[in-house]
Structure formats: structure tokens, C-alpha cells
Nucleic acid binder design. Structure first.
Length: 400
DNA sequence: GATCCGTGGTG
DNA sequence: TCACCAAGGAT
């Protein structure tokens, strides 16, 4: 039986296939390390088709490290909105500033130095070092792990320490077998993305199936072993919709944690299944005794990898803002301005519901009620009492 | 070392 | 509808 290991012949076959079949991706048309770095960060846990428009917009607005380093973080977040894993944007920004201040504005050219920058793990350091700088640095991502698991019959499930060690050792061995380390690493990922897929791999189109252990043993469908995933937890949030004329009150979340640093309608987490009355109480506890909680405006549901979010919206009138540990900044914004704030997709959907609820109210008080895109039933509106003529709120920032 | 962090596509 | 997955990193 053949010994399934990295060989020069395997390299040659896969590189020849890559030269012929690689996709024409925008970041493959540049040799600018900065542009390649941005693409690698965006591609973390994110599919190519999703990344392309974000990458183009980002490079247009921030064409080089210096431009990114000088930007304000909220603008970086705004360009990142919808991509998810927002700490990637924060770390990209921090790393750009570090590159300007300590590396003269140029990315370090070796994996070991890159690894010291925020947002660079072993994968990203290897990717930028090999693709942008031609260093024979190994990398293992989800694609490489799957391709190697099949080619070389690597047992164990994702997360298994021994498996990870084997995969990195194989990657190191393979990348050192010849030249073109960047193309080799990309060829592995390209094969995993387009041929050696997780589901329904196209073995008959595979350029290296004759060298593949799983193909030889009929184990393609069972390798790699399935990951054991934690159960998804329910999470419920009461959301305050505070209107003042054409503007709405927004809060910026504390850094770190879920949606860290992003803007949102003022929110408080409640026990899943909490009643409207319990959520109203929670909002008053969070926002202070000047808060008057009015009608429910409906709910938005959103599923993340580890959480099932339910956002319940309530009209709230607020006489005065008070400091909240979970909020680092307040501001009033119109609907148009809100679109440029960095909000999560979940909160953007919630805000769309709140905004449309307001529009619908206007229509109802006019002549004829038109159809609405929002499918959530809305209870009868009632005016909150007690805070309608309160003092104007201070802009921008609550007391620390 | 286990957990957390988002989103969109897919069958 | 739903479970799974995708060019990972930080704590």
C-alpha cells in the first residue's frame, strides 16, 4: 500500500492544476502586501463571494497602511458592517497603527514578525509571509485541514491537539519541498474550496486523486471527522426605541464581547422567555427611573453560530440619560445617519423595524394605511406618560 | 484548552 | 426550517 505523504510529484501536479484553474480573484491581481493582508483578514471564516465587494470598498477608502492607521475606528467599523467578527476590524486598525509607528509604515516581511501584530495568528502570518513576501511559511486553514486529512489520512476531529500538530507539521514539510510557497499554499486552499469540498467533493476532477489516501481507501466521505459543536443558546434582548423628532437615541457598546464597540439602540439582555412587563422593568432598571416604556413595536429574530437572538422593541421616552457600564457613548441620529454608524446586522434589522413603525404611525394618522414590509403584529399604540416634556438631553456622552 | 466572536450560502 | 460550514484570533 502506498505511503501517503507530501512529495515533489504531488506539489507539481497541484501547482500545475492551480496555474490552469485558479479563480480570478481581485486580491490575486495585486502584489501589494497591505492589500493581500486585508484580504486575508476578511477571508477569515468568511467566504470569497462575500468578501469581494467589502475588499474593494475598503481598499478604495483606505488604499494603504497609513490611510488605515489615520482613520477613526467607527469609519473602519462602518466599512466592515455586515462582515461579522468585528474584532477583526479593530485589530486590523490597531495593527496598521503599530506598523506605522514601529515599522515605518511597511508590513514586516517574515511570519515571525507578523505574528506579533494584533489580529495575526499562525494562519494569517503564514499567508501574508508566503503570498506577499515569498517566504516558505506554512499555513493551515479549514481547507488545508480537510485536504490534508484526506490526502494523508489524518485522523481526529477539528480541535484535536494531536491532529492540529500533525497538520502543521505536514504543511511545513510540504511548503519546504519546492519553490513558490505562496502559490502552493493558495493551491491547497483553492483545491479545498472548489474541488475537495466538505460536502460532495469532486474527486473525479481532482488533479491529485491518484495520490489521495482517502480516495484510495474509499474514506473521502468520512474524513475529516465531524466537529462536535456546542448547542446554540437562546438570548433575548429588550431594545429601547427613543425618538426625538426625526432622530433616535443610539448607544455604543463597550469594547469586547458580543458586538463589542458597535452602535445599537439602547438594549438590555433579559432572561429568554421574559414577558413584556419583565422586559419593560429591565429597561427601566437599565435606563433609569426617568424611562417611560410604552408600546411594543415587535420583535426581530437573528441566529448566530452560538446564539439565537430575539430583539424585542419597545417605545421608550427618556427624560435624562444616565451612565451605563455597558455603554461607552451616546448619540442621537437620524435614520440616514444611523446607516453610517457601525451596527450589527441584527441591530440594523431592529432599527429598520423601529423606523418603519414610526412611518406607519404617520400614515395611519393620515388618510389611508398602506401595506408594510414588516410582518410583525403591532399592538395598539399608546402614548407613554410622564416624560413627554422633559428637558432636552445632552448630546454625545453620558457622565462617566 | 474550551469558548467566544457574525454572517451568508447551502442542501 | 434548520444544521452545517467558511482563507481564524483572542482570551
Amino acid at each position: 500500500m502506498a505511503d501517503f505523504r507530501p512529495t515533489a510529484a504531488l506539489r507539481n501536479d497541484l501547482l500545475a492544476w492551480f496555474d490552469r484553474h485558479k479563480r480570478d480573484l481581485p486580491w490575486r491581481r495585486t502584489r501589494d502586501p497591505y492589500a493581500i493582508w486585508v484580504s486575508e483578514v476578511m477571508l477569515q471564516q468568511t467566504q470569497v463571494a462575500t468578501v469581494i465587494p467589502y475588499w474593494k470598498r475598503f481598499l478604495e477608502r483606505f488604499p494603504d497602511v497609513t490611510a488605515l492607521a489615520q482613520a477613526e475606528l467607527p469609519e473602519v467599523f462602518a466599512l466592515w458592517r455586515g462582515l461579522g467578527y468585528y474584532s477583526r476590524a479593530r485589530n486590523l486598525h490597531r495593527a496598521a497603527q503599530a506598523i506605522v509607528s514601529t515599522h515605518g509604515g511597511k508590513l514586516p516581511s517574515d511570519a515571525a514578525a507578523l505574528l506579533k501584530l494584533p489580529g495575526f495568528g499562525r494562519y494569517t502570518a503564514g499567508a501574508v509571509a508566503s503570498i506577499a513576501f515569498g517566504e516558505a511559511a506554512p499555513l493551515v486553514d479549514g481547507n488545508v485541514a480537510r485536504v490534508f486529512s484526506r490526502l494523508f489520512l489524518v485522523e481526529g476531529a477539528p480541535g484535536d491537539r494531536a491532529r492540529e500538530k500533525k497538520l502543521w507539521a505536514l504543511a511545513e514539510e510540504a511548503v519546504a519541498l519546492g519553490k513558490r510557497p505562496g502559490d502552493w499554499n493558495q493551491a491547497l486552499m483553492e483545491l479545498g474550496a472548489t474541488v475537495c469540498r466538505a460536502e460532495h467533493p469532486s474527486c473525479l476532477l481532482c488533479p491529485v486523486r491518484s495520490r489521495c489516501g482517502a480516495f484510495a481507501h474509499g474514506r473521502v466521505d468520512e474524513l475529516p471527522l465531524a466537529r462536535v459543536r456546542a448547542a446554540r443558546q437562546a438570548m433575548q434582548v429588550a431594545v429601547a426605541v427613543c425618538r426625538r423628532g426625526e432622530t433616535f437615541l443610539f448607544a455604543r457598546r463597550a469594547e469586547g464581547g458580543l458586538f463589542g464597540g458597535l452602535w445599537e439602540l439602547p438594549s438590555v439582555e433579559v432572561t429568554p422567555g421574559a414577558s413584556h412587563a419583565q422586559m419593560a422593568d429591565a429597561l427601566v432598571r437599565a435606563l433609569g427611573s426617568s424611562a417611560r416604556v410604552g408600546a411594543s413595536l415587535g420583535a426581530v429574530k437573528r441566529v448566530l453560530t452560538h446564539r439565537a437572538l430575539t430583539l424585542e422593541l419597545f417605545e421608550v421616552e427618556l427624560a435624562r440619560l444616565r451612565a451605563m457600564p455597558s455603554v461607552q457613548e451616546w448619540r442621537w441620529a437620524t435614520a440616514a445617519e444611523a446607516d453610517r454608524l457601525g451596527m450589527s446586522t441584527a441591530m440594523a434589522k431592529a432599527f429598520a423595524l423601529a423606523r418603519d413603525a414610526g412611518q406607519r404611525t404617520v400614515r395611519v394618522s393620515g388618510s389611508r394605511r398602506r401595506g408594510s414590509k414588516v410582518s410583525v403584529a403591532r399592538p395598539p399604540r399608546r402614548r407613554p406618560r410622564g416624560a413627554a416634556t422633559g428637558p432636552m438631553l445632552k448630546e454625545r456622552r453620558a457622565d462617566p
